[in-house]
Structures are given as C-alpha cells and as structure tokens.
Simulated scan of single mutants.
Amino acid sequence: MNFNILAFGDSLTWGSDHQQGSRHAFQDRWPNVLAAGLGGAATVVAEGLGGRTTCFDDHMSPSDRNGARILPTLLGSHYPVDLLIIMLGANDLKPHICGRAAGAAAGIDRLIEIAQSFPYGWGAAAPKVLVVSPPIFAASRAADGLPAGGRDIAESQRLAAEYEAVARRRGCSFFDAASVAKASVIDGVHLDAENTRNIGLALVPVVASIIKTSS
C-alpha cells in the first residue's frame, strides 16, 4: 500500500532560509527529510506557504493565507490522503492577526474538523491527522529583541499544551517540534537548515508508527 501524506504548513514547511534570504535546499526541508527517512514507505506532498495562518485572513499578502479556506481545495486535489500533518500557528501569533495561542488552537481545531468531515470521493476515508506545534520563538537580533512581526515569545510557549489538548479531544496524534528544534536568533521565528532537518528526522518514528497501525 502506498501511504500518502500531506504536509500542510507555512514558511517553516516551505523551507524559508532567513539567513540567506532564500529557501533551504530540497534535502533540508522537513517534509523531504521525513520522506527520505521513511525509505519509500510513503509519499509526502509538501504544501507550505509563507505567512499561512490556521483560519485567519491576512489582506497584506498577494496570496490567500487563510488555511481553513484553502485546505478543502488541497484535500480535493490530493486525496486519497492517509495522513494530514498540520504545522501552523506561528503566523496566527502576529499581533495584527490574532496574537493568542488560544486563537491558534481554535484554528487547529477548525482544520481538523475540515479534514474529518470533507466529502472525499471514490469511497476514500478521512485521513488521520498529526498536529505539530511549531518551535518556540526566540529573542532576535533586531533592535527591540522581539521575534519578527512583534510576536510574543510567551504565547508561542503556550502552543504545545493548547494543541495537544485539541489533538487529544479530536482523536489525533500530536508532536511538539520545540522538543527538537529552536528558532534562529536572526528573526526569532524561522529555522536554520539543521533545525528544519531535525523536525523531519524526529517525525520519522512518529509517522512510521502511524503507518504501521494503519496497515
């Protein structure tokens, strides 16, 4: 059985390299590290967009960053999806977007609801869902020392507990990326190549276990 995974996220999934002002190499982006680590046991489709939120509009972007609005389209494009990995919330914590971990958690809850209730065709079942809370923000090298966009470090520290509670209630799996990755001090939000690889490597046994229980 070919196991299909959709990795749904923001610039941390896209592979934004703020040190070089570009994108991390293909082999360093966590969805591709995950795919390599699974050794052909699964296909991983990376759907990362810089600035994407869980369910909030950001009208300052030329693209639609509202995750809840685009997820149904992606589910329709890529089904059958056996596992949906969601790693979002860092952009929800921008003050002008939401700013609160509780709001991001509510958005995660909405995304799970969409995934579990979408009318998949050809008898396809709803995917399992793995919720990944993003790494905690760090003090940056900016003059004010704040993470990019005026985000609050303390709110980012609350994400894991909030997300785990939502995942448990919805019957989903959970992983805390802060347990293996740290944000770069360049802007306090994004990851260097090593830390984005760390997420992919850490998810290999988590996802392998999900695949095993699904077979």
Rank of each mutant, 00 (worst) to 15 (best):
A124Y: 11
M87C: 14
F118H: 04
P62W: 07
A125F: 12
D109M: 14
V81I: 15
E164P: 11
Y120H: 08
L159P: 07
G48D: 03
C55R: 02
G51W: 00
N91Y: 00
M87N: 11
G99F: 04
E155Q: 15
L83P: 03
N91A: 01
A115P: 02
A142I: 08
H78M: 14
I86R: 07
R100F: 14
S61I: 01
D57Y: 03
D57R: 03
G123R: 09
E164Y: 12
A124H: 09
D57S: 07
A138I: 09
A148D: 04
A115S: 04
G51Q: 03
L159R: 07
A154H: 15
A90H: 07
A125S: 15
E113L: 13
I114P: 00
G150A: 11
Y120L: 10
R52I: 01
R100T: 14
F137M: 09
P119N: 06
A154P: 14
A138P: 06
M60A: 14
T54L: 03
G51M: 00
P127V: 03
A104R: 05
P119M: 05
A143G: 08
L74H: 09
C55D: 05
L146S: 09
A126H: 04
G149T: 05
S133G: 09
L159T: 10
A143K: 11
A105P: 07
F137E: 04
A68P: 00
G149S: 07
D109F: 12
A90C: 13
R100G: 12
E113Q: 15
Y120R: 10
R65Y: 00
P134L: 12
S63P: 01
S61F: 04
G48A: 02
I86D: 05
A106M: 15
V81C: 08
D144P: 06
K128L: 06
V131N: 05
D152K: 06
L111R: 01
Y120A: 10
Y79N: 13
I108P: 05
I114G: 00
S63K: 06
R69H: 06
C55N: 03
A102P: 10
P95T: 13
I85P: 06
V44Q: 01
I112E: 03
R65W: 00
G121K: 12
G76W: 08
V45Q: 02
A46K: 00
